[in-house]
Design a protein around this nucleic acid. Sequence first.
DNA 1: TACTTGACCGTAT
DNA 2: CATACGGCCAAGT
Length: 113
Amino acid sequence: MGTEDRNERIWRVVAAIPPGRVMGYGQVARRAGLGKAARLVGRALREAPDALDLPWHRVVRADGSIAFPPGSPLRAEQVRRLRREGVEVNAGRVRMPRIRDEADLDRLLWGEP
DNA sequence: TACTTGACCGTAT
DNA sequence: CATACGGCCAAGT
């Protein structure tokens, strides 16, 4: 599997995150079938074409913190977008529930059983 | 080829 | 709660 394939799989997963919910980098990697390649997710998002219009702001660290350094423009932008969706962000960490596992994501995407 | 870098994670303390 | 550490893995130098 080449780099492009991996990126596309990652982008697909990120694009599926519903508004108001967030996923961790490692979580996205696992869901994309890339095991523990959490760092690849950050790379893929960095290299993602703007035209894809991905909801990249819905991807945070495993502990809920924002990956960008304090004071950076991207950090501010991510917080802005999350709050606009009703996600609480305190001290650079999200409070809204994260998507826990595949069953959770499936439920969100396909509706309650 | 060898070493460093980073939108990271899980576990231990 | 927070911090520390080892593990991870492709790209860049």
